[in-house]
Computed example of a mutant assay.
Amino acid sequence: MIVLGLILLLIGIFAKISILTTIGIILVVVGAVLFLLGASGRAIGGRKHWY
């Protein structure tokens, strides 16, 4: 999710498409939060590992 967010963010910045930039930022933030919660050992949505 973080990689997809970064790709969309870069495409949005270079192509001057603001909606892609916004979606990219949101995906990077959500991916980072899920990564941090998963790395801390906390179960997310009933799952011990989030793929």
Score class of each variant (00 low, 15 high):
residue 16 K to F: 11
residue 18 S to I: 15
residue 13 I to Q: 06
residue 21 T to V: 04
residue 50 W to R: 08
residue 22 T to K: 11
residue 47 R to Q: 10
residue 3 V to S: 13
residue 32 A to M: 05
residue 32 A to S: 08
residue 17 I to A: 01
residue 15 A to K: 12
residue 27 L to Y: 04
residue 15 A to R: 13
residue 29 V to R: 01
residue 12 G to E: 05
residue 6 L to R: 05
residue 19 I to S: 14
residue 37 L to Q: 08
residue 9 L to P: 06
residue 40 S to C: 11
residue 42 R to K: 14
residue 18 S to P: 10
residue 10 L to G: 00
residue 35 F to T: 12
residue 48 K to Q: 10
residue 29 V to K: 00
residue 3 V to N: 15
residue 16 K to R: 02
residue 21 T to W: 00
residue 6 L to G: 12
residue 42 R to W: 06
residue 39 A to D: 13
residue 6 L to M: 14
residue 38 G to K: 07
residue 7 I to P: 14
residue 25 I to A: 02
residue 51 Y to V: 09
residue 2 I to E: 03
residue 51 Y to N: 12
residue 23 I to R: 00
residue 50 W to D: 10
residue 24 G to D: 01
residue 6 L to Y: 01
residue 11 I to A: 14
residue 23 I to K: 06
residue 48 K to H: 06
residue 33 V to N: 02
residue 50 W to V: 09
residue 25 I to P: 01
residue 1 M to K: 07
residue 1 M to L: 13
residue 37 L to N: 04
residue 51 Y to W: 15
residue 24 G to E: 02
residue 20 L to P: 11
residue 32 A to Y: 02
residue 51 Y to A: 12
residue 48 K to C: 03
residue 19 I to V: 12
residue 44 I to D: 04
residue 14 F to M: 04
residue 35 F to N: 10
residue 27 L to P: 06
residue 30 V to A: 03
residue 7 I to M: 12
residue 47 R to G: 07
residue 7 I to F: 13
residue 4 L to V: 13
residue 21 T to Q: 00
residue 47 R to L: 15
residue 35 F to V: 06
residue 12 G to Q: 04
residue 9 L to Y: 14
residue 43 A to I: 00
residue 27 L to E: 03
residue 34 L to T: 00
residue 33 V to D: 00
residue 24 G to C: 05
residue 3 V to T: 11
residue 20 L to D: 08
residue 44 I to L: 10
residue 21 T to C: 00
residue 47 R to C: 08
residue 2 I to D: 04
residue 17 I to T: 11
residue 41 G to T: 08
residue 8 L to Q: 03
residue 29 V to H: 05
residue 10 L to P: 03
residue 7 I to T: 14
residue 51 Y to F: 13
residue 27 L to H: 03
residue 8 L to E: 02
residue 38 G to L: 09
residue 34 L to Y: 03
residue 9 L to V: 05
residue 48 K to Y: 08
residue 2 I to H: 02
residue 49 H to E: 11
residue 17 I to W: 06
residue 27 L to Q: 05
residue 51 Y to G: 12
residue 1 M to P: 02
residue 2 I to A: 01
residue 33 V to F: 00
residue 45 G to M: 15
residue 16 K to S: 12
residue 6 L to H: 01
residue 44 I to R: 10
residue 27 L to W: 01
residue 3 V to H: 14
residue 31 G to I: 03
residue 29 V to N: 08
residue 42 R to F: 11
residue 39 A to W: 13
residue 51 Y to T: 14
residue 42 R to M: 14
residue 40 S to A: 15
